[in-house]
């Protein structure tokens, strides 16, 4: 009885919260709607006011001219190649290190863990110049390696995987080790499969990081053929000759597709895969 009354009283705030949440979600989505509908408009109508958030016409031709006027497809391909490489190797390195830090006792473990973890605290801008010199010394300027290798180390990822693996009882390793399996087998066929959620989280974060990487290509890549999407879109938006915002926005819309797929794949793991035990000092 009392509970019922309470629920009745809560209806009003509930509706308010729901309305606010809907408005908020519209705020997050409206730029995408505008981009999609404008990319389908005649180039000369692209800047029209009042703004239209829903398509008013369907000029698929804008997407066509994107590919004929501009080497757009290679950008997407480059971005995918780089992002996949970063994701796979970063996840592998992070899970291996996370496993060792969580489940193997070795000399200097804590010190090394703290050293690597301190990488979270180092602003990328403070190390970009020596990093540039390393890339240059290795002769990797203007290659995709330059935007893969420096990004394979992901301290936060190591931390998250370690936290997750620490929650798995040690008896799993012990039993397998007594049965004669070696550490690598234990890692690969027992602990790793159990840690899939956290590996997925790290992979999604790695993919997003690489997919969004603007600064790296800005300083490491020079030639057109090597460009990834973030720089490509920047160039596209300053490019005389595409003729209009509609065509540029067609490029913008296409760039949304891979992250949509990644999100659709990763979002369920994203929520179950992380136990956020704190950064204890």
């Amino acid at each position: 009885m009392a509970a019922d009354k309470k629920d009745g009283l809560r209806m009003a705030p509930r509706i308010i919260v729901e309305v606010v949440m809907i408005l908020v979600s519209v705020f997050f989505l409206i730029p995408f709607l505008w981009a999609i509908s404008t990319s389908l408009r005649l180039p000369k109508d692209s800047l029209n006011l009042p703004p239209q958030f829903l398509p008013t016409s369907f000029q698929i031709a804008n997407y066509g001219s994107l590919f004929t006027l501009f080497p757009f497809f290679p950008f997407i391909l480059n971005s995918i190649v780089v992002a996949v490489a970063v994701t796979v190797f970063q996840a592998l390195f992070s899970t291996m290190a996370g496993y060792a830090f969580a489940r193997i006792d070795f000399k200097g473990k804590n010190l090394l863990f703290i050293a690597i973890l301190s990488g979270i605290m180092i602003p990328g801008q403070s190390i970009i110049i020596p990093q540039f010199l390393v890339v240059k010394t290795f002769g990797l300027m203007d290659t995709h390696w330059a935007i893969i290798l420096p990004y394979l180390i992901f301290p936060l990822g190591i931390f998250l995987v370690r936290q997750f693996m620490m929650t798995i009882p040690k008896s799993y390793d012990e039993a397998a080790l007594i049965d004669g399996a070696d550490r690598f087998r234990v890692f690969w066929s027992i602990i790793l499969p159990m840690s899939v959620p956290s590996v997925a989280v790290v992979s999604v974060m790695g993919f997003i990081g690489s997919w969004n990487n603007f600064f790296g290509p800005l300083i490491y890549l020079n030639t057109w053929e090597k460009m990834t999407l973030p720089m490509g879109l920047k160039v596209l938006s300053g490019f005389n000759g595409t003729g209009s915002l509609s065509v540029i926005l067609a490029g913008v819309v296409i760039s949304f597709i891979p992250p949509i797929l990644i999100y659709a794949f990763g979002q369920k793991y994203l929520l179950q895969g992380t136990t956020l035990t704190g950064l204890k000092s």
């Binding site: 690597i116 190390i127 290798l149 070696d182």
Partner: peptide, 21 residues
């Protein structure tokens, strides 16, 4: 094995974060 497991991460850390800082 501990060192081997952290080697890839440690190496990239030293070359691209630790050394540079």
């Amino acid at each position: 094995t501990g060192y081997l497991f952290i080697l890839p991460a440690l190496l990239t850390f030293l070359v691209f974060i630790g050394g540079p800082i």
